[in-house]
């Protein structure tokens, strides 16, 4: 394990790590507000068109959505275990757990992709492209557009998280992180947990609506 470098603006490594961790929490806060604005849009239009929203989202497969919830929660668990083991200097174990988490992320995307393919096949598409039912009411189109937009934005976050998990797994194997140098591992873990938390809210709003 290479020694961690103390940059000149910090008094100690402990303060440097704290600054990195605090900055990550601030970044996650801003990410949450990005999704928060979309949740506000969802609440606004669901308040305006309650029945149409339920009608539009009834089309989604509860089984596939619930599968994805279990997959993401389990991946969050393996990431948390990985962060736990790097503190005990077990870098190989952490790398393995992060690879497993990346694969869970891939399973999530495959299931989501199956759903998307199904929607595209049935013309359950966003905005004016929605022709799943003839002359759809405005609320149905809005509900389904929000479904596409919010799940796709979440999907992009899953892809970003998978890339970061894979990179940190490789660096763990190269011996870059250990018991005293792991704030990057921790921060990537925090990002992945945020992706999980966002899905924890998307799932009841878009799948459990009937």
């Amino acid at each position: 394990m290479s020694a961690q470098r103390l940059v000149e603006q910090f008094e100690s490594l402990e303060k440097q790590d704290h600054a990195a961790r605090l900055a990550m929490w601030m970044f996650l806060g801003s990410e949450t507000l990005l999704f928060g604005a979309l949740f506000a849009v969802y609440a606004y239009y669901r308040g305006m068109y309650p029945d149409e929203f339920v009608q539009a989202l009834h089309h989604n497969s509860v089984a596939l959505g619930t599968t994805n919830t279990v997959v993401l929660i389990t991946s969050s668990f393996t990431v948390a275990l990985g962060v736990h083991f790097i503190r005990e200097n077990k870098a190989r174990l952490t790398a393995g757990l992060f690879v497993v988490s990346t694969l869970f992320g891939a399973v999530f995307l495959v299931v989501k992709g199956i759903e998307y393919a199904h929607h595209i096949h049935e013309n359950a598409l966003p905005s004016g492209m929605y022709t799943f039912i003839d002359k759809p009411p405005a609320g149905v189109v809005l509900g389904y557009t929000l479904y596409w937009f919010m799940t796709a934005l979440h999907g992009l976050h899953v892809i970003a998280g998978m890339i970061m998990l894979a990179v940190v797994a490789v660096l763990c194997l190269k011996g870059r992180y250990g018991a005293h140098r792991n704030v990057a591992v921790e921060n990537v873990g925090l990002y992945w947990h945020l992706v999980d938390v966002v899905w924890i809210f998307l799932w009841p709003l878009f799948y459990l609506t009937d």
């Binding site: 990431v79 948390a80 873990g189 947990h193 938390v197 809210f201």
Partner: peptide
């Protein structure tokens, strides 16, 4: 669920 993730998984 979010509280569990925040306090335990996210330390």
């Amino acid at each position: 669920k979010t509280l569990v993730v925040l306090f335990i998984f996210m330390h």
